[in-house]
Amino acid sequence: MLKFLKQVIDYGKETAQAAKYIGQGLAVTFDHMQRRPVTVQYPYEKLIPSERFRGRIHFEFDKCISCEVCVRVCPINLPVVDYEFDKASKKKKLNSYSIDFGVCIFCGNCVEYCPTNCLSMTEEYELSTFDRHELNYDSVALGRLPTKVTDDPMVTALRTMAYLPKGVMSPRDLPAGAQRANSNE
């Protein structure tokens, strides 16, 4: 009987605890309701990608020496380097170069190891297409530079959190020339 009573009391205590926690949870949810939205209205507003953003890869055709280092360091041997050996000049001559961004994991190894720095990462991330094969960029497509968010007249560029002045939470309506927190200047 005593054991049974103890069980009942324990059960009651657990119930009260559960009710308390649910109440606390509701309070937290309610508190969140009054905070300002952090939404970025995407096609009209865009965040400025950070300096080390790893977006679509840019390739400079003329700098490439067809050494195939990028292929070897790529985890999936992705870049396709199509060259032929020019007997006259005893040099490799690059015919075409392509990377399939439907497969690329944007690890940046190729950029890191390219001896002539002809690969670089851009800040382009809008890579949606209707057909995945359209993502297989050839050397011409790889050579295009993306429009910078800050240069696009259709878009309001917004700074991300780390680039805001100290204590400022909203990237909108910053004073001109506001420096980010912890900047050296």
Binding site: M33, R36, V38, T39
Partner: peptide
Amino acid sequence: KISAAVQQRI
């Protein structure tokens, strides 16, 4: 609307 507000969306 309320779901959005709770998750700090619009």
